[in-house]
């Protein structure tokens, strides 16, 4: 890590490219998520506790939701890091903000995963 990186190692071709791919994925995933949550009543035209639990117990839906969380956290984190890179010049403040971002990201990953996997 060169001294100019100051806590940020992202910012290459992958980061740029994957930010766009994850963005497109998030857009589609958000539409799916929104639709299944609000308009996807299965049999009787009504969304019930049962129908939601049924879906949440389906491993495929769990995988989708985990992917959703991971991508969303990555996209947000990567985006935030790029902003920090551009606007926070003081090394100390930068370290603190980047550390805060990492803590936030881990928090959302853990809480999100626990919710999806029914551990909470």
């Amino acid at each position: 890590m060169s001294d100019r990186d100051r806590g940020i190692r992202s910012g290459g071709a992958f980061s740029w490219f994957f930010q766009r791919i994850s963005g497109v994925f998030l857009l589609l995933a958000l539409l799916v998520h929104f639709w299944v949550l609000h308009f996807s009543a299965p049999d009787h035209g009504e969304i019930t506790f049962g129908s939601v639990m049924e879906r949440l117990n389906n491993p495929l839906w769990r995988a989708f939701d985990i992917l959703f969380v991971v991508t969303a956290v990555y996209h947000a984190m990567n985006g935030a890091l790029l902003i920090v890179q551009d606007y926070i010049r003081a090394t100390g403040l930068r370290m603190i903000v980047v550390a805060g971002l990492w803590i936030g990201a881990l928090y959302f990953l853990i809480v999100g995963s626990m919710t999806i996997l029914g551990l909470a």
Binding site: S10, G11, A13, Q85
Partner: peptide, 11 residues
């Protein structure tokens, strides 16, 4: 071009 101080710093 392809490094952190190259192309990808253009936002």
């Amino acid at each position: 071009l392809d490094n952190r101080h190259g192309l990808w710093r253009c936002h």
